[in-house]
Design a protein around this nucleic acid. Structure first.
Lengths: 260, 260
DNA sequence: AAGTTATTGCGCGTTAGTGCGCGTCTGCCG
DNA sequence: CGGCAGACGCGCACTAACGCGCAATAACTT
């Protein structure tokens, strides 16, 4: 079917998505794909270049490596494959049979939750609203939410209520999404209240698995959750800085690098 | 005309739902779908953009953050019209200005939450996942969830964690959905754990508004939440048994009968 | 029941997005 | 080194969406 409602926003998303996977795009090709004139594609590329989201070339454009300043929605798109791979790997790490699992917020943990949705004998403890909303539809697993105040930016419940709820629960495994992980800074995130809630969950878990795509390894953000020594396993992807990975290994954590 | 009661709130919900699934919407398309003029759709998009719930483009709008997609379920079953009317009535009962409001699970309370979504100066305390999922998108209101174990049937969080969280909170008004209400049986529901959680919320509220369509008046179910004397106001519809309504009035509660 | 407010639809002038044409330029290759 | 095909930038015209103001209607209040 010929899509009638392909506006600039859709084209821009498509261009960025393609750029994230293939690294470069061809203007004429894009024009044919979106059924618009090459002139329009050039204009699209122009606005994207103005936003430093790509670098134009003759005949098209190439990706530019400035992931950290991309809007969130495109950041997700860029690391989508890596996150999916990480989630699959974590799913395989989990023991079979009855299990109590803690999940913090984040896109990778959300993907993992989806993978686990069909499991039985699973109890999931989470403070992430999007994960809870999805898992609440599955009658076979037990879902426990921490309470707390909702953070609009991350769909996480945080604060004293969440901490209090977590203090009464014990988990065999906690899977934690973070913004940054490094030996010097430990696990870090943007928000100090969120950091505190995540720290509480980590303290209540026997095993701590951190999920972080390669761009987060070596990064340090405002709020520390806990030192790297509290981490049992880190699962990241091949784009991670090898030196940073090696340092975390020496600090005592198992590190699994997927892809590449 | 197919649907006479398509107000702004309904359109806004529909737009957001569509936006959550497709990532972008077309103004002309929406106008056709909701049977309103494009001008009206544009105004809807404007208010949503003001609330940072989407980003307008020429021809429509795009989601601000397509990374987190909350699966919103609309399974409003029977008595749809009555429930909508009841929710509208309750919305008008609430005082203007800053307010802390408790909401239990249920379709009527969910409809009410949607009506209140545009309010500012509102703090909502709820144990209902579907309500939280919808309100978490609204940056202007503060959302506090009780934790607890998820009941698949009702999207409610119940149990000791929920009770514990509620014990630390005080609400000016609690709006409670029940399965049955009668002078003899009090407020009742199917599940005794849910009843206990609802009872805790009622104890922490200055005013208690019960929402129950007519089919629930006079009914008694397994688990008692509290006696009718704890209720400030009951809002029901004209299909309620008049004798039952009168009995509840004599028991000291204000009863508002809508419709008919 | 009457007044008031909010919401919707329509017409107006204005603006953004798109496609086409033409002159210029890049990059390739003989 | 020089020519050539394709890509580029720029300007113009056309379409559709937009914002604004006004009037009609619906809804709510007193």
């Amino acid at each position: 079917m010929a899509q009638s409602t392909l506006r600039r926003a859709d084209r821009v998303s498509g261009i960025l998505e393609r750029l994230a996977t293939t690294g470069s795009v061809d203007a004429t090709e894009l024009a044919g794909e979106f059924r618009v004139s090459p002139a329009t594609i050039r204009r699209d590329l122009q606005v994207l270049e103005d936003q430093r989201l790509l670098s134009r070339t003759h005949g098209g454009a190439v990706a530019v490596d400035v992931a950290y300043e991309l809007p969130v929605r495109y950041r997700i798109g860029q690391h989508r494959e890596e996150k999916a791979l990480i989630a699959q790997t974590v799913a395989k790490l989990l023991p079979r049979g009855p299990l109590t699992l803690g999940l913090t917020g984040g896109t990778t943990t959300h993907l993992l939750a989806r993978l686990l949705a069909e499991r039985v004998d699973l109890t999931v403890v989470t403070n992430a609203l999007n994960i809870a909303a999805e898992l609440s539809l599955r009658p076979r697993l037990k879902l426990i939410m921490t309470g707390g105040v909702s953070r609009t930016q991350s769909y996480e419940l945080v604060g004293p209520i969440a901490d209090q709820a977590l203090k009464g629960l014990n988990m065999a495994v906690a899977v934690v999404g973070v913004n940054g992980i490094s030996v010097r800074g430990g696990l870090t995130t943007h928000d100090e209240i969120e950091a505190n809630t995540n720290a509480t969950m980590i303290r209540r878990a026997d095993r701590v698995i951190v999920v972080a795509d390669g761009s987060k390894v070596g990064k340090v953000y405002l709020a520390e959750i806990c030192p790297v020594s509290d981490v049992t396993t880190l699962v990241t992807d091949a784009s991670a800085d090898p030196a940073g990975v090696e340092a975390i290994r020496r600090a005592g954590a198992e590190v699994i690098v997927v892809g590449g």
